[in-house]
C-alpha cells in the first residue's frame, strides 16, 4: 500500500494543481456559457457552485474533452486538454448530472463493463465493481435491472461507475440532484470520504453553496459563466459570515432598522423580511461589538428584535457581494 501512496503523491504532490484553466471561454452562438475562466483546483474536495446555467457542466465537459472550448486552455492532472485528452480520460471519473443508465442492465454488470471500458481486465473489473458498489451502498440491489431503481440508487450506481477504475480525480455533476434530505446527507458524506479516505481529488457541483461548504476544502463560484470567487472554504465562511437581523413589523420597520445601522457604520441590505449585515468595519471587529450595536439600535428605535443570528452562507450573498466588488 505504501508503494501506491508513494506513486499517488508522486503524481499529485499536494502543492501541485489538479486542474488549471487559463482564459477558458465557451460560447454557443450568442450564449456565453463560460467567459475567460482562470482557476486553479488543488487536491481534496472542490465545490463548484453556481445557479442553473452558470456553466458548471460546460466546464466539466470541456475538461473531459467532450466539448471544445471557444478559446483559452486548461490542463487536468498535468495533461493539456487539447493534446492529451485521452490520457486525461484514463485518469478521471465522471458522474454526469442527467440519467445515463440503461434500464435493462444490473448495476453489477454495468459497472463491470464500465471498468473494462476504462482498461481493467475481466477479473479486476469484477473485483473492483463489487468493492465500489459496496462503498456507495448498493449491496443487495446490485443484481437487479437499474430501470427499477429509485433516484437515490441510480445516483449511487452512477457514482460507482465513476470510481470503479480508481481514478485520480472525479467530476461529480450535481450528485445530490433529486435526493431527499437523508439521501442527500449520505451522498455528501460519501463525497467527503472520496476526497479524504479514498484519496481521490473531487470536483463536485451544486447550486447550493450551503451543502458544498460542508464537504469542500475549496469553493469556486460561477455566475453567468464568469468566476465570481475561488477560495478555501474557511475563507469563504469567514467572508460570508454576515449577520441576519429580523424585527417585528413590516418592511417599514425593516428599513428603519437598516438605515439606523448604516448610520452606525455597518453595511446592510434588505433580504426578504430581514436585514443582512456585512462583516463589521475594523473599529467594530471586537467580538460581540456588532451584536451590541444591533441590540442598542433596535432598543433605541423601539423595535422588537425577533432574530439575530449568523448567516449560514447563501449563494445570493456571494452574488451580491461579488457584484459589489467586481
Amino acid at each position: 500500500m505504501a508503494g501506491v501512496t508513494g506513486e499517488l503523491t508522486g503524481l499529485l504532490p499536494t502543492n501541485q494543481s489538479v486542474i488549471t484553466t487559463a482564459g477558458l471561454t465557451k460560447h454557443y452562438g450568442s450564449v456565453h456559457a463560460l467567459t475567460d475562466l482562470t482557476v486553479d483546483v488543488g487536491p481534496g474536495v472542490t465545490g463548484l457552485v453556481g445557479a442553473n446555467g452558470a456553466g458548471k457542466s460546460t466546464l466539466i465537459k470541456i475538461l473531459l474533452g467532450l466539448l471544445e472550448p471557444t478559446s483559452g486552455s486548461a490542463s487536468v492532472l498535468g495533461h493539456d486538454i487539447e493534446h492529451a485528452s485521452q490520457e486525461i480520460r484514463r485518469l478521471v471519473g465522471y458522474m454526469p448530472e442527467h440519467d445515463c443508465l440503461p434500464p435493462d442492465v444490473s448495476a453489477s454488470d454495468f459497472v463491470v463493463h464500465m471498468a473494462r471500458m476504462s482498461g481493467l481486465g475481466a477479473a479486476p473489473a469484477r473485483e473492483r465493481a463489487a468493492d465500489v458498489l459496496r462503498h456507495v451502498g448498493l449491496d443487495e440491489e446490485r443484481y437487479r435491472p437499474m430501470g427499477g431503481y429509485s433516484t437515490g440508487m441510480k445516483q449511487r450506481a452512477k457514482l460507482a461507475q465513476a470510481l470503479v477504475h480508481d481514478p485520480h480525480l472525479v467530476f461529480l455533476d450535481e450528485p445530490t440532484n433529486g435526493l431527499d434530505p437523508a439521501a442527500r446527507t449520505d451522498m455528501l458524506r460519501l463525497v467527503q470520504r472520496i476526497g479524504s479516505d479514498f484519496g481521490i481529488a473531487v470536483l463536485v457541483t451544486s447550486h447550493l453553496l450551503g451543502e458544498l461548504e460542508q464537504v469542500s476544502n475549496h469553493v469556486i463560484v460561477l455566475d453567468g459563466g464568469r468566476l465570481l470567487r475561488s477560495s478555501a472554504t474557511t475563507d469563504f465562511l469567514r467572508r460570508t459570515g454576515n449577520l441576519l437581523v429580523e424585527v417585528v413589523g413590516t418592511e417599514t420597520e425593516r428599513d428603519r432598522l437598516g438605515e439606523a445601522l448604516a448610520q452606525r457604520g455597518l453595511t446592510c441590505r434588505p433580504r426578504g423580511s430581514m436585514v443582512a449585515v456585512d462583516p463589521p468595519p475594523p473599529e467594530l471587529a471586537e467580538a460581540g461589538a456588532v451584536h451590541d450595536v444591533i441590540r442598542d439600535v433596535t432598543a433605541e428605535l423601539g423595535l422588537g428584535l425577533m432574530r439575530l443570528e449568523p448567516d449560514h452562507g447563501h449563494l445570493e450573498d456571494v452574488f451580491l457581494e461579488g457584484g459589489a466588488h467586481v
Binding site: 473531459l64 467532450l66 485521452q86 480520460r89 484514463r90 478521471v92 471519473g93 465522471y94 454526469p96 442527467h98 440519467d99 445515463c100 443508465l101 440503461p102 434500464p103 464500465m114 471500458m117 476504462s118 482498461g119 461507475q161
Partner: peptide, 17 residues
Amino acid sequence: RDLRHRSIVLYLARPLS
C-alpha cells in the same frame, strides 16, 4: 441504446474516442 439512455456519455468520458 447508448444514445437513448445516454450511457454514450459514460463511454466517451473514458479512453475510447
